[in-house]
């Protein structure tokens, strides 16, 4: 595996008495999309802000490409960041906003036109950004992040406010960027979005690391086989003897954990049980995520 590009070591950030991030150690690697997942208030944004040098950690260190963010010679050429879609002066045009950013890192003005075209904002480039919708704001934020053609991308909730077409566009963009060997860290509280985008997941809950795993592992750990049979009780008994955990579903089918489809099929054949349906059920990331974060939600609606 390539060496880590983003390193967070024993990071703690406290606001007054509340710890936003507690002793977080995690690394992010190039060439894949890393999903940064967690409920609201779990510390995703705080961690990203610390990595970008916007927020001072209470303790611990963060490094990008081997050094603190502030020490990067050309920050925008190395790292593209989207932290807050409202992070711009409402009275400035999209073009002027990007031009000022480009100039600050000695990037050619032609890059501004390039990224405006890339995100599809040509028609509104000279309008004041105060009138932009959230989705247009996100596109402008992405344009700013891509200005320096950076090796590393840190995007906080980039699909927030995008329409379905925009979400698909974003997904493909992130995929392409990762395939080019760049490091992509994307935060989201939308599990369904991550499921289609990320290769690797870092899950936070209440500022602590809950999981740092490949997407397939997390999904695999919570996947099962669905089998439907007119002789369900017989089959269930046979499967249990084979070591599986069985759960009877409301539609009469069985949910089998601990065996794959081949094994379930073989058990049914050997027991002489007829099978009408045999399906691999991949757990939704949502279910896996809820299983992980169930106890670590900071803000929860009161049970009624």
């Amino acid at each position: 595996m390539l060496s880590p590009v983003i390193e967070v070591e024993a990071l703690t950030k406290e606001y007054r008495s509340r710890a936003a991030v507690s002793d977080l150690t995690v690394t992010v690697h190039p060439g894949r999309v890393t999903g940064f997942l967690g409920p609201n208030g779990s510390g995703k944004t705080t961690t990203m802000r610390c990595v970008l040098g916007l927020t001072r950690p209470t303790s611990g260190t963060t490094r990008v490409l081997g050094r603190p963010y502030r020490d990067l010679a050309h920050p925008m050429r190395r790292v593209g960041a989207l932290v807050d879609p409202r992070a711009r002066h409402p009275g400035r045009s999209a073009y002027a906003h990007l031009l000022a950013l480009a100039r600050s890192n000695a990037l050619p003005a032609s890059r501004v036109d390039d990224v405006i075209e890339l995100v599809g904002l040509e028609s509104v480039a000279h309008d004041r950004v105060g009138g932009f919708s959230l989705g247009m704001g996100q596109r402008l934020g992405i344009a700013a992040a891509l200005l320096g053609d950076p090796d590393v991308l840190l995007l906080d909730e980039p699909v927030n406010g995008l329409d379905p077409e925009g979400i698909r566009w974003m997904r493909e963009l992130l995929r392409d960027l990762a395939d080019e060997g760049r490091t992509v860290l994307v935060s989201s509280h939308l599990m369904s979005e991550m499921e289609d985008t990320a290769d690797h997941l870092v899950v936070l809950g209440r500022g602590r690391l809950l999981a740092d795993v490949p997407m397939s592992d997390l999904l695999g750990a919570h996947s099962a086989v669905r089998v439907r049979s007119p002789q369900a009780p017989l089959l269930a008994a046979a499967l249990q003897r084979a070591g599986a955990a069985i759960e009877l579903q409301i539609d009469g089918s069985l949910r089998v954990e601990g065996l794959d489809t081949d094994q379930v099929g073989d058990v049914a054949f050997l027991s002489g049980v007829r099978v009408h349906e045999l399906t691999q059920v991949t757990a939704s990331l949502e279910a896996a995520y809820l299983a992980l974060t169930g106890d670590d939600v900071e803000y929860r609606a009161a049970a009624r």
Binding site: L52, M76, V79, R86, A87, R88
Partner: peptide, 18 residues
């Protein structure tokens, strides 16, 4: 102050961290 009022300080300081 306009940078802090609008939040654009985040963009600016990410681009110029010094």
């Amino acid at each position: 102050t306009a940078e802090f009022a609008s939040g654009s300080a985040v963009s600016t300081l990410t681009a110029v961290p010094r």
